[in-house]
Amino acid sequence: MAAKAPDRRRNNPPSHGTTAPVFLSTSADAPKAQQEARPPGEIRKIFLRTGLIASVTGSSFLEISPLKLSVSVLGPRPLPRSSTTPFAAQAILTTEVKFAPFASTVRRGYLRDSSERDLGSRLYQALVGAIRRELYPKSRIEVVVTILDSEDEGDEVNTIFMEEGKASSELKYWDVGRAERALGVVLAGCITAASAALADAGIEMYDLVSGGVASVFVDEADSKGKGKDNSVGEKLYVRDPPVAPPGGKAPLATCVIGYMAARDEISELWISGKLGTRNGVTEMDELVDEAVAAARASRGVLNEAAKERVKFIVGKAQATAGAEGKDVEMTG
């Protein structure tokens, strides 16, 4: 008789059977994240390029090992027609930060979680004052950041650390501010890369905003025996800090800033951790100064990346002009 009618209600396996795939083990050869030896005042090397995505107005890609992220800038585009938003005399900026599911050490979901929303609003704050929004009425500018790799450990871990860090001192010292350091490096990278993408898009700005992050550490012994007089020993300020604290040191606080170097203005400031109340003012000032120094250091990279496309066009124009000049010489 004829073959049995195929079962269309279920997902059928292939008729010829399958073989389970065999993967070569790479875990033994996988390079370990080495503890790089760099002075505390030096930031990691930054790789920043612009104009990689053709379908958007402006884009950039940033890499500060192991952080990788790409930024797309869309617009200025018309406001959605059916929206209830009233007439907007200035451009409406929207920022969105999304971790790829594989970007953290703990896998993330596809929906935006609370730390992504938090980073998005901080990025908005860092950029909104720098854009000349009055030049773009009735329009919106969208900044979309996709993080492809980071030292971050996922939203659940962040929430636990952040809440417990504030609630109790039972937490092990090396975990304090761990999430803040990871997210701080991410946010600083987002700010720098987003400015480069906005410049690439040709959107007018008062100044480029560069991100900087710094942490302050004390000797472990000091942190344990910290008295009520807040007299702690020598503090160690680290710019662009790694997630793991330096050996024998306990973290106190982390500061992230968005900094407009040409105007000497801070557009975004995020400090978390413990800074003593009595010496608090000077401690905080010192930490902010360190973060500003880190932001100044990344500004140089940002300037070059922002110029990249224009430089290419000018170079090409000069090359063709030179070729034409040669032609004239030959004919003449």
Binding site: A199, M205, Y206, D207, L208, A262, R263, A306, V310
Partner: peptide, 9 residues
């Protein structure tokens, strides 16, 4: 002609 970036005087 020189290249400039936003914020440059």
């Amino acid at each position: 002609t020189s290249l400039v970036v936003p914020g440059q005087p």
